[in-house]
Computed example of a mutant assay.
Amino acid sequence: MKARVAAILATATSLALLNTLVLTPGAPEVFASDVFGSLRLPGDAAFIAGHRGDRSVAPENTIAAFTAAFENPSMQFVETDVQLSRDGVPMIFHDTTLKRVTGSPKRVADLNVAELKRLDVGAFYGEDFVDTRMPSLDEFLELAGGYDKRLLVELKADWTPQQLAIVVAAIERSGVGSRVLLQSFSIETLQNLQSAAPKQPRMLLIRELPADPVPMALRLGVLALGTTAQSVTAAPQALQRLHEVGIGVVCYTLNSERSWAEVQALGVDGIITDTPSDLDGWLADNAPGT
């Protein structure tokens, strides 16, 4: 029965992708199945993405956390966040202000690279990480080049075409561009990215799925939507519609067995988590074939 459903979905997806290419100007040349391996059926194991690296063993968004994530065989993706410094350098950091991590009330955009590099982004996590420094996007991509993981890179807030060009250039220099999926909550950013780098795979982050998110996803040329477990369970038909046209669905940031079970039952393609090793163990016990 499962094989029959898979065949039906594959046929529907192929027809939908053909229609998308023919009818939708600027449709992406890379599809979710190219990046995710395949789209999942209900009950299939989702891929695992480490949230800001592997936060369970090192401070978030640091070289230590990324190294742990890259060396963890359970993870297929590593997620991170990018903001521009005052002097226009893409830096790896999540929060709107630096307060929680460094104690400074300022924002990344308020300081230049030299000033940001003087901040300690590890002491808040524990004594073993005192004097840890904030990495740049270039440093993150250079590290990624030594591994085979795919990268989910969130562009925080709104980005102009000129600002996006800086990030796209860094990705192109790195040699790992085929493994980078850019993501954002900002429609403006995704529209600008669609114009500036139409071939760069991208994902829309959205807290609540509309009943039919397909028109919006096709208009933006995204290959996936990232959303919450609550949104997917409230609108499972939206996930099904996206899969029917070959668009993936990823859920963030899920750290409990209950949430993992809910989204796996619906066929979510990927799970972003702070506890990748725990999720890997749970999938081994609850997803046949993993």
Rank of each mutant, 00 (worst) to 15 (best):
M1S: 15
K2M: 14
A10P: 08
T13E: 14
L15K: 11
L18E: 13
V22G: 08
G26D: 01
A27L: 04
S38L: 07
L39M: 05
G53R: 02
D54F: 00
S56H: 06
A64E: 13
A68Y: 07
S74Y: 08
E79K: 09
T80W: 01
P90G: 06
P90K: 04
I92A: 05
T96R: 14
P105G: 11
A109S: 15
V113I: 13
R118M: 12
G126E: 01
R133S: 11
Y147C: 09
A157C: 09
D158K: 10
Q163V: 07
A169H: 10
A169I: 04
E172V: 12
S174L: 00
G177V: 01
F185T: 12
N192Y: 00
Q194H: 12
A197D: 03
Q200N: 06
Q200R: 13
R202M: 07
L209G: 10
A211M: 03
D212I: 01
P215H: 06
M216A: 14
L218I: 11
A224T: 10
T233V: 13
P236N: 10
Q240R: 15
R241A: 14
H243T: 07
C251I: 11
Y252I: 00
S256C: 09
E262Q: 15
L266P: 12
G270R: 05
G270N: 02
I272T: 12
L283K: 13
D285K: 15
N286T: 10
P288G: 14
